[in-house]
């Protein structure tokens, strides 16, 4: 579904791919302060502010929205994913599967001795999940570092900008999903 609202405009932010989290949160707080129903604002206005905060807060959905605004259609979701991101898939998948198997056995173990028997495996699993999480975060930072360049291209070679948006959008989609999955395992393991 294409949206006609400009979420950047709703929060009074410049339109672009790169957006600092802190800048976004402060813009949301400034608008939320006057539009929240408790402050006398209308429900629909706060709803649009809230919606803009959610859409712009996630880099992938922000890129999709930017693409719709700039090119009248969302980014191509089915195109190729860059090799550096795809290369992480195996490591992340293995770490998650290993953690799940270990956590199932740990849950089934009801005594201190049974849990202790699993301790060696636990150390290994935790190490693997942490490493996978680190790789996902590092790759995500690399992708995010491309966004200011895309903003420059938007004022120059727009075809290149559109291509860049698509690439980053697809990579961030995968990295976001993996980040959540790895994070959940990490919390369960500590």
């Amino acid at each position: 579904m294409g949206e006609s609202i400009d979420h950047f405009e709703v929060l009074g932010l410049p339109r672009g791919a790169a957006l600092d989290e802190e800048v976004l949160r402060l813009a949301f707080q400034a608008r939320g302060r006057v539009t929240h129903p408790d402050a006398g604002g209308a429900g629909e206005v706060f709803e649009s502010v809230n919606r803009a905060y959610v859409v712009l807060g996630d880099p992938a959905s922000r890129l999709r929205h930017l693409c719709e605004l700039e090119f009248g259609a969302g980014p191509d979701a089915t195109g190729a994913v860059d090799a550096a991101t795809m290369g992480l898939f195996e490591a992340v998948g293995a770490a998650i599967a290993g953690a799940d198997a270990y956590l199932r056995r740990l849950e089934a173990a009801g005594s201190a001795v049974a849990k202790a028997l699993l301790a060696a495996e636990g150390v290994e699993v935790q190490r693997a999940v942490m490493a996978a999480g680190g790789q996902v975060r590092a790759r995500r930072e690399e992708v995010l570092a491309r966004l200011p360049g895309i903003d420059r291209e938007l004022r120059g070679d727009r075809d290149l900008a559109r291509q860049g948006i698509g690439e980053c959008y697809r990579a961030l989609g995968f990295l976001g999903k993996w980040g959540v999955q790895v994070g959940e395992r990490m919390v369960a393991l500590i």
Binding site: V113, A116, L117, A119, A120, E121, G122, V123
Partner: peptide
């Protein structure tokens, strides 16, 4: 103690 020993070895 046996359990603690196992955990120690693992770490």
């Amino acid at each position: 103690q046996l359990a603690a020993l196992l955990v120690e070895r693992a770490l």
